[in-house]
């Protein structure tokens, strides 16, 4: 049991538990907070996999910006809790059953068919962060320049769309 394995097990436990917490918490604010924790653990997984830039992006964009947006909307609407009861009684047991089957299939696939138990090569946590980010940046601005620019257009469109959608129409207010 070396340090990495212990770290992995702890983080995995936290990730799964926070995901379940998000799933079951009745209050949307709690769910959002669980999710923040979950994202943070995933960010550490990224670091362990030698992807420091993605880890930082995960923390700033997901755990930071997106979740803040979520919390903001929850509080704006005051919709952290919904009244009990539902119109679809069979939905939950069916969903859980199907999810179990899906998980079983995934496990079967991972352990029986692929069997990739070989350890990952190269440095993990020990990676040269500056060099890794530099490599990623070069690829992004050379090979993937066009998709990168298209992404900016996508964000602009999303922004305009959000503004147009939430804008009150004339005479409505």
């Amino acid at each position: 049991m070396d340090f990495t394995l212990i770290l992995f097990i702890v983080l995995a436990a936290v990730a799964v538990l926070t995901a379940i917490g998000m799933l079951v918490s009745r209050n949307a604010v709690y769910a959002a907070l669980f999710l923040v924790l979950n994202f943070a653990t995933v960010a550490i997984f990224y670091l362990m996999l030698g992807a420091p830039f993605i880890a930082m992006a995960q923390v700033t964009v997901y755990a930071g910006a997106i979740m803040v947006l979520f919390l903001f909307v929850i509080m704006l609407l005051g919709a952290e809790k919904l009244p009990k009861g539902g119109v679809l009684p069979w939905q939950r047991p069916l969903a859980i059953g199907l999810a179990a089957v899906l998980l079983a299939e995934a496990g079967y696939l991972l352990f029986q068919r692929i069997q990739m138990t070989t350890e990952l090569a190269g440095p993990g946590l020990e990676v040269n962060s500056v060099e890794a980010v530099r490599t990623l940046g070069l690829a992004l601005f050379n090979q993937y320049l066009l998709p990168f620019e298209v992404t900016s257009v996508l964000l602009l469109v999303a922004m305009i769309g959000a503004i147009v959608l939430t804008k009150k129409e004339k005479g409505e207010a």
Binding site: F45, Q115, M116, G124
Partner: peptide, 8 residues
């Protein structure tokens, strides 16, 4: 290091 399967 850990095997790929763990992460998957």
């Amino acid at each position: 290091m850990l095997p790929l399967t763990y992460y998957l």
